[in-house]
């Protein structure tokens, strides 16, 4: 009969209306600033610099200041100044490090090319999206202190990718150590290996192929 469909519709909405009060499960929305939805793993937005240790981010940056990313960056939003001296890096090798590492996020287009060209797994894509500021000149230009984030954070946002990277780094380090042993001339000053890599979860099928997995 005419109107039965209308009554059915009214029933459905009435159920929603009443149900949303006694059954919070029905509410499909999140209260955004307080609750945040877990972003999908492959979501990427603006690069950050990976450091091995959260307590000393500047000392344990993976970046060696090779400036490949700076040269490859299509909009040229990266600015790097190399250091004159050398510091031992995560693997204990003496390396140059970046004294200045700036990324202008008002120019960056999140293309991920810097990540793909980096041979040291030092720069990775972040998941930040709340970057609105009141000051559009300086606040959007991130320096290395703001860009450095520990490896554990990387594990948090891209777990699969981070595990692969860690496995690969470990394999490379072992190969380097074996080479060093084969040379049989132990060097006296070997920097202690930082711990986060050891505690990171290792997937059973750690791929041997180089390069970061495509997002």
């Amino acid at each position: 009969m005419l109107g039965s469909g209308l009554l059915q519709g009214l029933k459905v909405t009435a159920k929603n209306l009443v149900g949303s009060f006694h059954d919070p499960e029905r509410l499909t929305t999140l209260e955004y600033p307080e609750q945040k939805a877990k972003l999908p793993e492959n979501y990427r937005n603006f690069p950050f610099l990976v450091s091995e240790n959260a307590t000393d981010p500047m000392g344990t940056l993976r970046c060696v200041g090779c400036q490949i990313c700076e040269k490859e960056c299509p909009p040229q939003c990266i600015y790097i100044e190399k250091s004159k001296d050398k510091k031992p890096d995560a693997t204990g090798k003496m390396q140059v490090y970046p004294v200045v590492f700036d990324i202008d996020t008002s120019v960056c287009m999140s293309c991920q090319i810097c990540v793909e060209v980096c041979p040291f797994e030092a720069i990775k894509m972040d998941q930040v999206f709340e970057i609105a500021t009141k000051d559009r000149f300086t606040a959007l230009l991130l320096d290395r202190n703001q860009l450095a984030k520990p490896n554990s954070y990387y594990h948090e946002i891209h777990p699969t990718e981070a595990a692969e990277v860690d496995a690969r780094l470990l394999a490379e380090r072992k190969a380097a150590e074996e080479k060093a042993k084969a040379a049989a001339t132990p060097k006296p000053a070997v920097a202690p290996t930082p711990s986060p890599t050891a505690t990171a979860p290792k997937p059973p099928e750690a791929p041997a192929a180089g390069g970061t997995p495509a997002p």
């Binding site: 909405t13 929603n16 209306l17 949303s20 029905r26 509410l27 499909t28």
Partner: peptide, 10 residues
């Protein structure tokens, strides 16, 4: 409010 509840949002 009521439209929200009908659409299962607060």
């Amino acid at each position: 409010k009521m439209l929200g509840r009908i659409q299962n949002r607060p």
